[in-house]
Design a protein around this nucleic acid. Structure first.
Lengths: 152, 152
DNA sequence: CTCGGTGCAAAGAGTTTGCAATCCG
DNA sequence: CGGATTGCAAACTCTTTGCACCGAG
């Protein structure tokens, strides 16, 4: 309907359709929230933001949507150290990035200033692993762990 | 006491001491369980195995030890898709490896047949990031997501 | 019209916390 | 000895499920 609110709505419609699912208002809302943030939100935080767009949405729908998107490989569930899951689009509009995770305070820094060489190597590795393990690779997650500036 | 049961006991003793903590039977047991497995165990599974070595240990101690080791950067908490956390030594005796995660069935394949280039690039990236973000990097986690052989 | 999706309330599970007893150094 | 650590049970929170109703295609 309004492509400006949920980028690539048609594309998502197709992705859902491809696995026997439907595009609904609830799902659109969750996707939009994920697209509009640059943070790693918990289900709960996504729910609060989603409510502002669509007051009728329930927390259950948020969970079910995230579960489905995760299975589809479109969303990554991150481990934030505390017990709740945090989520981000696998292929974010905000651009591809990797993580620097502080093991003291659990904060996460996104960085995207890595060399072209790194991307090239990843592609190569992906290809090699795909063949060797007969695995269809869709995306990846790279995290470095350590102590951040503040915690030192 | 018996270095053969918990490799590098003295080393661990030192690590704990270094952050104002003590080496105890419970902690030793948890570390030993982690060293002796090649799987990604949940707190619960670690507890069950720990009990076989040391019947007096409590689940609470397992959680508290994992929490501490995680903060120390010695253990990684992995996200397995189901809601419980899974853990592995950051610097396993079993050797360093990366993960291939199936987004359908949540199974994890460890692989360690890296390209030499991959290791070199990682070291380089670590160094660059350390400087740029004033971050002490201790370890990393690399995961590729996709669909496994069985789930295709 | 059909079957997948949704909200609500309740159930389920994993994890954390309070506290008195215990152990390390 | 003194403070860190532990086990137990209770408390908490996040997440999932059952069910009747709704809505996309």
């Amino acid at each position: 309907m309004q492509d400006k609110n949920c980028q690539g709505r048609g594309q998502w419609h197709g992705k859902f359709h491809g696995c026997g699912c439907r595009m609904t208002a609830g799902r659109e809302t969750v996707i939009r929230v994920l697209q509009e943030t640059s943070k790693h939100l918990s289900a709960d935080e996504i729910f609060i933001r989603a409510r502002k767009i669509n007051p009728d949405i329930g927390l259950t729908t948020v969970y079910r949507t995230l579960e489905k998107l995760s299975t589809m490989g479109e969303v990554h569930r991150l481990d934030s150290g505390d017990k709740r899951g945090r989520f981000e689009l696998a292929d974010s509009e905000k651009g591809h990035h990797h993580h620097l995770v502080c093991t003291m305070c659990n904060s996460i820094i996104d960085y995207d200033d890595f060399i072209d060489e790194e991307i090239k190597l990843l592609k190569e590795t992906e290809k090699k692993l795909s063949q060797k393990y007969n695995f269809n690779i869709n995306s990846h997650l790279i995290q470095f762990y350590g102590i951040c500036e503040k915690c030192k």
